[in-house]
C-alpha cells in the first residue's frame, strides 16, 4: 500500500504548481485553472485521509468540493467574459484601476 505521505506529497506538489501558476500567469483563464489545481490538490488530501482513516466523510467532502469548484469556475468564467467584453483581453494584471 502506498504510504499516506506520498499522497500528501503529491497534493503538496500539485498545490504548489497551482500556486506558482496563480502568481506568475497573467491570463485569467490560466489563473482559473491554477485555482482549480489547488482545490483539487486539497481534494487529493481529503480522499487520501478518507481512505487511510477508513472513513467516508472525506470522500463525500471531496465530492462537494468538486461541485463547488465547478460552480466557482462558472462564476469565474462569467466574470472573465465581462472583462473581455469591456477590454477585449483577459490579462488580469492590467486590472489595476483600484489600488492604493
Amino acid at each position: 500500500m502506498i504510504p499516506l505521505n506520498w499522497y500528501l506529497a503529491l497534493s503538496a506538489i500539485v498545490f504548489s504548481i497551482g500556486l506558482y501558476g496563480l502568481m506568475t500567469h497573467k491570463n485569467g483563464i490560466r489563473m482559473l485553472m491554477c485555482v482549480e489545481l489547488m482545490l483539487n490538490s486539497a481534494n487529493i488530501n481529503l480522499v487520501a485521509f478518507s481512505s487511510y482513516n477508513d472513513d467516508m466523510t472525506g470522500q463525500v467532502f471531496a465530492l462537494f468540493s468538486i461541485a463547488i469548484a465547478a460552480a466557482e469556475a462558472a462564476i469565474g468564467f462569467a466574470i472573465l467574459m465581462s472583462i473581455y467584453r469591456m477590454r477585449d483581453m483577459i490579462d488580469v494584471d492590467k486590472l489595476n484601476i483600484l489600488r492604493w
Partner: peptide, 10 residues
C-alpha cells in the same frame, strides 16, 4: 496595495 492580483496572492 499595488492593485495587482498576483501581489495580493503573494
Amino acid at each position: 496595495q499595488t492593485g495587482v492580483i498576483q501581489d495580493y496572492a503573494a
